[in-house]
């Protein structure tokens, strides 16, 4: 019948619901952002404020801080839905679970990844990142933070039923973030040196496509196990 249409409607409905929930509870948007800012501000205080040192460290610092901010906010993807039972309803629905999960991950990225992207030029200025590298920083974050949300969703799905899930989540997810960190920060570093970065950007794009196609499936089966 009109299964196609009702699927896209379910997708949009779920996306809207998550966004509305986030807007009603603004701290969910604000806190990871604040964390991102504070962590990056700690580095100059810790290692000294020599402009050259900061400039050399900036890409790595921004990327590690983005990684940690994403990690901190990951639990929100499924936790509250798990606690009030709506996650089970999502699993029981007639639509493919992986598509619905994609809606939830997209909402999570819009809530936590996108704001990060918007403040990162500011942090680049604070850390003395050369002007020329700012565009690359934005581009790598735009390609990389969705991967963080997608891969993180698998980890959350595996740990959502556990009482002490938070610390285990970071053990599971951080090793999987290594490629994103490497390509993201090396692209920014290379751009700061004035060398073209198409290689790293294509690799990040490839990783994003891979995560986009495989991670919802893995997340769906992980959720089924966690809720069984």
């Amino acid at each position: 019948m009109n299964g196609q249409r009702s699927l896209s409607r379910a997708f949009l409905a779920l996306l809207r619901r998550d966004l509305v929930l986030a807007v009603r509870q603004r701290s969910e948007i604000g806190n990871p952002l604040l964390f991102f800012l504070i962590v990056t501000a700690m580095f100059p205080l810790g290692v000294g404020s020599k402009p050259q040192l900061l400039q050399a460290m900036a890409p790595g610092v921004i990327w590690v801080a983005a990684l940690l901010a994403a990690l901190l906010s990951l639990d929100a993807i499924f936790r509250s839905d798990f606690e009030d039972g709506s996650l089970e309803q999502i699993l029981l629905s007639a639509h493919p679970v992986s598509v619905l999960i994609l809606a939830k991950v997209l909402a999570h990225w819009l809530i936590t990844g996108l704001p990060l992207l918007l403040v990162s030029p500011l942090i680049g200025v604070l850390l003395n990142l050369p002007q020329g590298a700012t565009a690359t920083l934005l581009l790598t974050l735009a390609l990389g933070t969705p991967i963080l949300s997608l891969v993180g969703a698998i980890g959350v799905a595996l740990t959502v039923g556990l009482r002490k899930g938070g610390i285990i989540l970071s053990l599971l997810v951080l090793p999987l973030y290594v490629p994103v960190l490497i390509f993201g920060s090396s692209a920014v570093q290379t751009a700061a040196a004035g060398i073209p970065v198409t290689g790293q950007l294509s690799l990040l794009g490839a990783l994003l496509l891979l995560a986009l196609s495989l991670s919802p499936v893995a997340t769906a089966s992980a959720l089924r196990i966690s809720l069984s």
Binding site: V151, V178, F183, L203, L207, L214, A218, I225
Partner: peptide, 24 residues
């Protein structure tokens, strides 16, 4: 349940190990 959860994680790792290896 634990065995099946770790099975998912192991398979995610299998996809990732080559990527991690070459990226490093």
């Amino acid at each position: 349940t634990a065995a099946r959860s770790t099975a998912v994680l192991t398979l995610v790792g299998v996809v990732n190990i080559p990527i991690i290896h070459y990226s490093v």
